[in-house]
């Protein structure tokens, strides 16, 4: 009987990071699906576990963990199974550096575009009064602003342009890095690859003019190599939305 419960949404962005890390390690866990589009993450029963109302969270016995990238490092350390962190300190530094760049620089731009085209429109048709109440319930002021912008389509042109600029640059940067090494941070598959895959798995579909076999062969090689792993297949099979099913593009040779 597992004493690990993961509270997560789709295998995508932050939720997918600990999901895939646990599955790569072969750790059995209870999956507690929170429907982000139904605002499950702001309900009292979840706020009792994670008062910040961010997804994902993990419990291990009576320990509660949040912050997806930090959870992944814990998963690698606390459980047996194949190691997902390189041995050499300099490789570890590189793994952490690239995860931070993904989490705090490239990720938010991908995410802003995703919220604008997917999350916002998916929830916009709900009752206006209910949406106002939902926004008021969000604990973190930053997330309240983000949800308001997504729900009411308030991302400015300047913000969207900046996100597009970062996505385009980020794709070029990733392509160059993946030309230097087999994996993102070192010669070993690591948490940095799990992190990056969660951000980029649908890239050839979402940014077809910026990422394709001609322009970014290294990124495509990398994404396909990750999706060829049994853990990644099993993880993405847990997805329920059309957004996540886009991963099927990686099955094509």
């Amino acid at each position: 009987m597992s004493d690990v419960t993961l509270f997560h949404w789709e295998p995508n962005a932050n939720s997918g990071k600990p999901m895939l890390a646990l599955m790569e390690k072969g750790v059995a866990f209870h999956s507690h699906y929170l429907d982000l589009l139904n605002f499950d993450q702001h309900r009292p029963d979840y706020l009792a576990i994670n008062p910040q109302g961010t997804i994902p969270a993990m419990t291990h016995g009576n320990r509660v963990l949040t912050e997806s990238t930090a959870i992944m490092e814990y998963v690698d350390e606390a459980f047996s199974g194949p190691t997902l962190v390189p041995k050499h300190p300099q490789d570890r530094w590189r793994m952490r550096w690239w995860m931070k760049w993904l989490d705090q620089w490239l990720g938010p731009s991908f995410s802003m575009i995703g919220w604008n085209v997917f999350v916002g429109p998916a929830v916009r048709s709900k009752d206006p009064g209910e949406l106002r109440a939902v926004i008021d319930r969000i604990p973190l002021p930053e997330r309240r602003v983000a949800w308001r912008k997504a729900i009411y389509g308030q991302f400015s042109d300047a913000e969207m342009r900046e996100s597009q600029r970062r996505v385009a640059l980020g794709i070029r940067v990733l392509e160059t890095e993946l030309g230097k090494r087999e994996w993102l941070a070192s010669d070993q598959y690591s948490l940095a690859d799990i992190n990056g895959f969660n951000l980029a798995y649908a890239l050839p579909l979402s940014q077809p003019t910026l990422s394709n076999d001609q322009l970014t062969p290294n990124i495509l090689r990398w994404l396909r190599a990750i999706y060829a792993r049994p853990a990644a297949k099993a993880c993405w099979a847990m997805g329920r939305t059309a957004m996540v099913k886009r991963v099927a593009i990686l099955e094509q040779p």
Binding site: L65, A70, E77
Partner: peptide, 14 residues
């Protein structure tokens, strides 16, 4: 301890 390390890394992250 792994959990205390998680606590430190998430503290630093925030």
């Amino acid at each position: 301890d792994s959990y205390a390390r998680w606590e430190m890394m998430s503290w630093c992250r925030q």
